[in-house]
Design a protein around this nucleic acid. Structure first.
Lengths: 123, 123
DNA sequence: AGCGAAACTGGCCGGGTGGCCAGTCCTCCC
DNA sequence: GGGAGGACTGGCCACCCGGCCAGTTTCGCT
């Protein structure tokens, strides 16, 4: 017991592409100071596929629309949003309306789903 | 021009903990066949902190509830869900009700948000 | 047989939602 | 100085949503 001040970092590979996953397992399996997680083992970190949502491809949402969107994602009703933002329910509806437009959604539930998919918001 | 059939895997480290990130950068930086992404560069894969949602911790949802939940996440109205599942709107409401219960949600938007967060559904 | 869970259906109703119309203030820009 | 866009507000209204009550059938387990 001496230089084990830092135990191996346990890494789990969570990549769908079997080819890439294999290459990584190969490369990382023989790195000193690092270990691949056994099945079921809790890892310190995971290697995941490049998240597709990272490229913004931003839909142009105004700040206010983002405010409303965030609260919608919390399950807040128009009334709650109005109170939280100190604006009238009508104004909330106004923003929700343009949100549905811009996100090409049919309702508020669809809107937050689309927004989450496109990375506009984080659930 | 011979064994470059497989260019280096570009890896980006996206970990908040600076200590862990540093150790990983150190260990991974010197692995042949693998390269750390330059800032802004698009990586093949990312090293991320253990995603909390990976552990199932499944809420016990019945098959029918999962059916309804999936359609809710598509932004479908109760009427649409009813048509798609060949059941009455009342039955849909019944399932939505227990979904709200089990997912501890205040409305359908909140329900799909919670479900997505817990990994019950994939957006 | 008896019992519970799941799925299904109905009526009723208050409140929420989204679409339409209208309008007023800003500020930035040509 | 006139336009364009954003934020904001109002009324009106059809429809949807979620919660309440009630009931049926079918299944598996004991």
């Amino acid at each position: 017991m001496s230089e084990d001040t830092t135990p191996d970092i346990v890494l789990s590979i969570e990549i769908d592409d079997p080819v890439l996953a294999d290459r990584l397992a190969m490369l990382l399996g023989s790195v000193a100071g690092l270990r691949l997680a056994a099945s079921g083992e809790t890892a310190n970190a995971s290697v995941v596929a490049r998240d597709p949502r990272v490229m913004p491809e931003d839909i142009a949402l105004t700040q206010r629309e983002l405010d409303v969107l965030a609260l919608m994602a919390e399950g807040a009703s128009n009334k709650m949003i109005a109170r939280r933002l100190n604006i009238s329910v009508h104004t909330v509806k106004f923003h929700v309306g343009s949100l549905l437009d811009k996100l090409d959604a049919t309702g508020r539930t669809d809107a937050v789903a689309h927004a989450a998919r496109r990375g506009v918001i984080e659930l």
